[in-house]
Design a protein around this nucleic acid. Structure first.
Lengths: 331, 331
DNA sequence: CCGCGCTATGCAAGCGCTTGCAAGGCTCTA
DNA sequence: TAGAGCCTTGCAAGCGCTTGCATAGCGCGG
């Protein structure tokens, strides 16, 4: 583990016969350095094998190029596509992502936010809406770029990039109604988002003359196994539903597998919808009708926000990326 | 976005009537500060709402408390459990994780390694073994803590925490042989790890008197849809296998679904095994026989390595966390 | 009552960059 | 040919911490 200290900017400057200021400029905004000088520095950097010390840069420049991304989990997360797309985009711009896990625990959320602030990250990206008031306050007090994704609250802490879960629920209700279903049953994960969708669904469904749907709540994160359990729960209902609206594709998938095992044909005897349009939704047999959220789109909008902020430009506080119902075989 | 600069160590020191050195010590090793002083500083920190600037700390202390974790992807990754467990453990120790995505592209891997070095991370954690020589060299040259996980190479770059994929393959061969299967078919993702397992399986299978298994290669990351495709591929074989050894639980799951759709009973007419023992393996119908890798165990060992390094203690270069075959209904 | 060995604290020199300011050198116009 | 204006570069003052070294205070044995 004994190493000679890694080369500093100064060594490069010496080698190239310029000042450290010029090398710094070359590294951060090459267009401000004359072409010939650029080349000399390039050669020097190469020769020395110089790698800048980003911590020093962050301190001096008050810009860390570090973005905190806070998610509940990654083992079983509907956000993974979005997070992956964001990390890709951010890396392309020379940023690094500090990924922090919050579970569904506000204490952990708070702790991770403090950590992010201590790191002086350039922005904090949250998946989901922050409901807890204390957390909101803390974030607002920091007066930094905070991006809430996947949700679209009335009053974002700073900026929100997402879609209306309520609208998604309503749209789904309309869709199923138009397909002639009569008796939906909702399987709703205990997250603010899912609850909102369910609420939208019910409102719309009833408004269109349907009778109040039955519902079952399940824990988050939702997973395949819950689908199976949910199916069993159906037998306890006084009347069997004709369509089960699941809070995630995993639940839908599990439910379909269990239905088949019980000899029930999907969608003939029981229709099913999922949410998230994970890859498996299109691969499942039958393919699963789902609601698609374009993670790459969210990532691009997040980048747009970040770039706007970097250039002191104005940006909308609420960016709607929408959603699409993907009609497939299961409903 | 106009803010007054956030409070510095000095303000806290002033408020508490001590020097910045003492506050710094309080923050980093409280036991070195007298009890009464401790309390005064605690109150001052609280009153001021002080959050240390970790970038400054990293620069001054030559310790970033930043750990880079490099994975191919997270959208469809068998490592997610392990990564999640590592992030949890690391956060508990006051570290942050910089998550970088490398795909299966060596250029990206190299770029992300450089980024990690520029950040002066305290350690780099890789999932999977680094095969590319240039990358190895770069990492060795950095002479820092580098932990390769999930694999167990003969000569780790620095430290490896994982298991022998070859042994896992061999063990699976032995297991299936003992269960009386005669004609296995392998579905092998194009990753070094999977290839190694396949190779171990074949060697062992043949050594035990079996005939050379057939095999199908699939792209990484593997997913549910490939399972379905793999099933269809079976019909092209001259003789139908009695067990399909899949490179991941997702493939196994997809294959089972497709088999059912084709009216083939699993495991009666066709047995299936997965790999990774994801949650769904236990939830699937039939439940999937799989190979369990204990992500939390890997995470704990990684922490042990990190702590040993922090205290300049010796640590084994190869830490075997093993694997367990979980026999379930599907094979 | 002195000196030794601790413990608790302070002093101040960095850590390796970025950037505001200023100056030198050019080009171009009037 | 002088001045204006731009481009390029250097100077040097930080950015907010950590930590080696020095010092002060204290208890205690001789």
């Amino acid at each position: 583990m004994e190493t000679t200290r890694s080369p500093r900017l100064e060594e490069v400057a010496l080698e190239a016969g310029v000042s450290t200021a010029t090398v710094s400029r070359y590294l951060n905004s090459p267009e401000r350095v004359a072409l010939a000088t650029r080349e000399r520095i390039r050669v020097a950097v190469e020769a020395i094998g110089y790698l800048p010390n980003l911590n020093a840069g962050a301190l001096a420049g008050n810009r860390s190029r570090l973005i905190a991304v806070l998610v509940p989990d990654i083992a079983q997360s509907i956000f993974n596509d979005t997070v992956e797309a964001m990390i890709d985009e951010l890396a392309r711009d020379g940023n690094s992502v500090v990924l922090a896990l919050t579970g569904s625990d506000n204490r952990r959320l708070t702790a991770e936010i403090d950590m992010a602030l201590a790191r002086r990250v350039d922005a904090i990206i949250l998946t989901g809406i922050v409901t807890e008031e204390a957390v909101r306050k803390r974030l607002e007090a920091a007066s930094m770029t905070v991006i809430e994704t996947w949700g679209l609250p009335e009053n974002p802490i700073d900026v929100a990039v997402g879609f209306s879960h309520r609208a998604a629920g309503e749209e789904l209700a309309r869709f199923l109604r138009s397909r002639g279903y009569r008796k939906p049953h909702l399987v709703v994960p205990r997250s603010a988002r899912s609850q909102r969708r369910a609420s939208g669904f019910i409102t719309r469904w009833v408004a269109e003359g349907g009778e109040e749907p039955t519902r079952l709540e399940v824990n988050v994160p939702s997973h395949f196994g819950q689908g199976r359990l949910s199916f069993r729960g159906l037998s306890e209902l006084s009347e069997r539903p004709d369509v089960v609206v699941c809070g995630s594709d995993w639940i839908a998938q599990g439910l379909i597998v269990e239905a088949h095992a019980a000899g029930i044909r999907v969608p003939d005897q029981l229709a099913v919808t999922g949410f998230g349009n994970l890859r498996l939704a299109g691969d499942m047999r039958p393919t699963i009708t789902s609601v698609d959220i374009d993670g790459a789109h969210i990532a691009r909008e997040v980048m747009r926000v970040l770039r706007a902020r970097a250039n002191n430009l104005e940006i909308e506080a609420r960016i709607d990326v929408g959603f699409r119902i993907i009609a497939r075989e299961s409903a």
